[in-house]
């Protein structure tokens, strides 16, 4: 199992952002993590990436415990956050070179060149982050995640700021990485994207997992049978809203 989460719980003072969350993502699987604002998706992803320390629970990346053996776990993990967080004094190439050094990526220059071409960043190699648009900065963050052979990829709203061409390319890239054997957990509010690329969906609300399965499995669930067959309809039903988005 590439990614395994057991009874994950994360609190901020008295507030519980993620409560008793358990799931697994197998190699080659793309799992969509969806939920309303404040459902705990980003907290979950940040806890899985090692940015937030879980209050309790277990996270394993390729059998390596994220708390017990953080270096081994992090070496196999790539996290692409929704907000591009770059060092404002490093150029695009230097970001990739730094990542290459810290993760021990062989042949970093060749990989970087290929990846920058794939993400349409060719010509921006010597640009600093403040010379790039938000979409391009997002692509640099994604390049930093993809330049190494991570077995588990975590995407938090990966399409934010990308243009239509970038969105299409990113979809292709995500699917291609899964086909190559990576386990992918993708958080997004774009339900059509999730429905299109994900093999399975986890729906969260108020810190808890309220649904887990393929779209077809969810649609066939007895309590959701009336909701309809597409993810949007299922989502509204599961989170207690009607199709107009009004809380029931």
């Amino acid at each position: 199992m590439a990614l395994s989460v057991e009874h994950l719980r994360r609190t901020y003072g008295a507030f519980t952002a993620v409560d008793d969350l358990s799931f697994e993502v197998r190699a080659g699987e793309i799992v969509g993590l969806i939920g309303p604002n404040g459902a705990g998706k980003t907290t979950t992803l940040r806890s899985l990436a090692g940015i937030l320390k879980p209050t309790s629970g277990l996270v394993r990346i390729d059998t390596h415990d994220l708390t017990g053996a953080p270096l081994e776990a992090k070496r196999r993990l790539a996290f692409m956050p929704d907000e591009p967080h770059l060092f404002e004094y490093l150029t695009v190439t230097e970001h990739l070179r730094l990542i290459g050094r810290l993760y021990g990526v062989p042949d970093i220059d060749r990989r970087s060149t290929a990846l920058l071409g794939e993400l349409e960043l060719t010509g921006k190699e010597t640009a600093l982050p403040n010379e790039l648009s938000r979409g391009m900065r997002q692509k640099v963050v994604i390049a930093c995640g993809l330049v190494r052979d991570a077995t588990t990829l975590l995407f938090d709203e990966p399409l934010t700021g990308l243009d239509p061409i970038g969105i299409r390319r990113m979809r292709t890239t995500i699917v291609a990485r899964a086909r190559d054997g990576a386990a992918i957990l993708l958080s997004s509010h774009l339900l059509h994207l999730v429905e299109e690329v994900c093999t399975r969906v986890i729906i969260m609300d108020r810190g808890r997992k309220i649904a887990d399965g393929t779209v077809a499995e969810l649609a066939s669930r007895a309590d959701l049978a009336e909701a309809g067959s597409n993810l949007e309809q299922i989502f509204f039903r599961v989170t207690g809203h009607d199709t107009a988005g009004t809380a029931r």
């Binding site: 404002e88 004094y89 150029t91 230097e94 070179r97 730094l98 290459g100 050094r101 810290l102 021990g104 990526v105 062989p106 970093i108 220059d109 010597t126 640009a127 600093l128 403040n130 010379e131």
Partner: peptide
């Protein structure tokens, strides 16, 4: 602060310890 992309004459080697990076 504002930064300018100047060449500094030090290219990070692809392998080695983390500290020099």
């Amino acid at each position: 602060a504002a930064y300018r992309a100047r060449k500094v004459g030090w290219t990070l080697a692809p392998k080695g310890r983390a500290e020099p990076a």
